[in-house]
């Protein structure tokens, strides 16, 4: 646990020192969503209809955008190898990295989402399920993304490759995340969707750090 917290603290300090990264992710999130009214027209009804989907897709892309750096900087300056040699299990290290990724991208996205809901004319009932679904979904995105980020270590074309690897695996989270908002706007309960999102998170929590650690290990060989 101490090793976990030490890595989280170290990476958070690094992230704050660079500072702008989180803000850039949020800026991308906002700009990507703002493009849609230009694309489909500003009719409030149209925007309200597509709001949950657009916000979710933009969140997906924004979360993916910062994944490439998850292990890359540590891999390049060799500190990833030091982390792997520590007595802390590599799985814990990966989990710590995922936690930091979520704190620096997932959390800001959740905070920014209501603002985008306003811009996209999201019906009032939609805000609560959107926030809950994002809270349950974005950690899963970070967890799945960590595997992809570890797999591309040392490869020739990192970023684009990463999106090809990770985006198909994001589809279930997208489907249930959007559906949770849609059904509440339609007047139903989003309980099944939110339960499934929780299930995905609970499944990803042990499996993804394990697979991610295996991927980091083969990357360091």
């Amino acid at each position: 646990m101490n090793g976990f917290l030490a890595i989280v603290r170290r990476d958070l300090r690094l992230a704050f020192r660079q500072g702008l990264d989180s803000l850039m992710v949020v800026a991308f999130f906002v700009i990507a969503v703002v493009l849609f009214p230009f694309g489909v027209g500003p009719q409030p009804n149209t925007l309200a209809r597509i709001a949950p989907g657009v916000i979710w897709v933009a969140a997906l892309l924004a979360s993916m955008l910062s994944l490439e750096r998850l292990f890359q900087t540590d891999y390049e300056d060799g500190s990833l190898e030091l982390l792997a040699l520590q007595p802390v299990a590599l799985e814990i290290t990966v989990m710590a990295k995922v936690t930091v990724h979520w704190l620096t991208t997932g959390l800001p996205l959740i905070v920014a989402a209501p603002l985008l809901g306003v811009l996209m004319n999201l019906p009032e009932d939609g805000y609560m399920p959107l926030m809950i679904a994002l809270t349950l979904g974005t950690p899963t995105l970070s967890l799945i993304g960590a595997i992809g980020a570890a797999l591309i270590l040392g490869s020739r074309r990192g970023g684009i490759l990463l999106s090809l690897l990770v985006l198909p695996l994001y589809i279930p989270v997208l489907i249930f995340g959007v559906s949770a908002v849609d059904v509440v706007i339609g007047g139903f309960s989003a309980k099944p969707q939110l339960l499934i999102l929780s299930g995905l998170l609970v499944g990803a929590l042990p499996l993804c750090p394990w697979a991610g650690a295996a991927a980091v290990r083969q990357g360091l060989e």
Binding site: I147, L151, I152, S155, L165, P168, L169, I171, P172, I175, F176, S179, I196, L200, L207, A211, A214, A215, Q218, G219, E221
Partner: peptide
């Protein structure tokens, strides 16, 4: 090696994706 890990991760995900697409 890297793609082997990816194939296994994908394989675990195929039923989940199938289920969610059917639902959707």
């Amino acid at each position: 090696k890297a793609s082997s890990i990816l194939a296994l991760v994908g394989f675990v995900n195929v039923p989940i994706i199938k289920f969610s697409v059917d639902w959707w």
